[in-house]
Each structure stands twice: as structure tokens, then as C-alpha cells.
Amino acid sequence: MANEKILIIDDDDDLVLAMRLPLEAAGYKVARAANGEEGLKKVKEVKPDLIILDVMMDSTTAGFQVSLALRSPDPTSEYKAYSKIPILMLTAIHSTTPLRFGPDQEYLPVDTFIEKPIEPAKLLDQVRKHLKS
């Protein structure tokens, strides 16, 4: 079965736990980073097959910055090798939040959103789908 590596970049231990359990049960190897900076470091270290990225961490837009760094169109970018890794962004974006836009290669280069609270089945669905492609 699946033996892919998944990197969760999220500062909330409990939420990480809620995701780690179903992912590990499904056979994935799960690594974790607690903020954006550590996340970028871990990407190089772990070389994950998929990244689950939270938006608000040490800053309110830390997640956006990570995704922008990874998907930078600059050919000399140090993350050039990792730009193809699928990114699943965790959101708790609510109807009143002013930030409301879909995944977009230029502005918000992520592959999909996963809404909080995490539904294990939905999470696994999305992970499988993005690992396949």
C-alpha cells in the first residue's frame, strides 16, 4: 500500500494529531513542522510527496508565504525541485473572512483546500487523489 511521505505544516498539535492518526492508519509516513520557516526546512529534509499546510501560524499569512516560496516561478529558486509537490491547504475560512479566493497558480499556488473541522474520510480522499496525479 501507500508508502508516501506527507509533511504537515501546522502549529496546532491537536489538529496535527487528528490528521496524523487517519493518515498513518492509511499507511502514510507523516512528518510535521510547527511553523512556516521550519516547514520550508523540512521540505528539503524530508522531500515529502504531499504537503498539508495551515494558513495561520506564527503569522496570519505564514501558510501563503510557504506556498508562494515553494511554487516560486523564479528558475533560480532554492525550492525549484519541490515545486511539483501537491499542497493541500487547511482553511477555516468563513463567509465573513475577507480572504476568499480559490486555488490559483499565481496568487495562491495550492492544489486544494481542506476545510476544518477535518473529516478523516474526506482528508484521505483528497490525499489519495492528489498523490495519484
Binding site: L15, L17, A18, L21, P22, P117, P120
Partner: peptide, 14 residues
């Protein structure tokens, strides 16, 4: 939302 996520994981039998 974290509580709800944990509960769902719990209820899903993980």
C-alpha cells in the same frame, strides 16, 4: 474546530 476534528477522528475509529 480542533475539538470537532479530534472527535471525528475518534468516531471514525482511528
Amino acid at each position: 474546530s480542533v475539538v470537532r476534528s479530534l472527535l471525528r477522528t475518534l468516531l471514525a475509529g482511528y
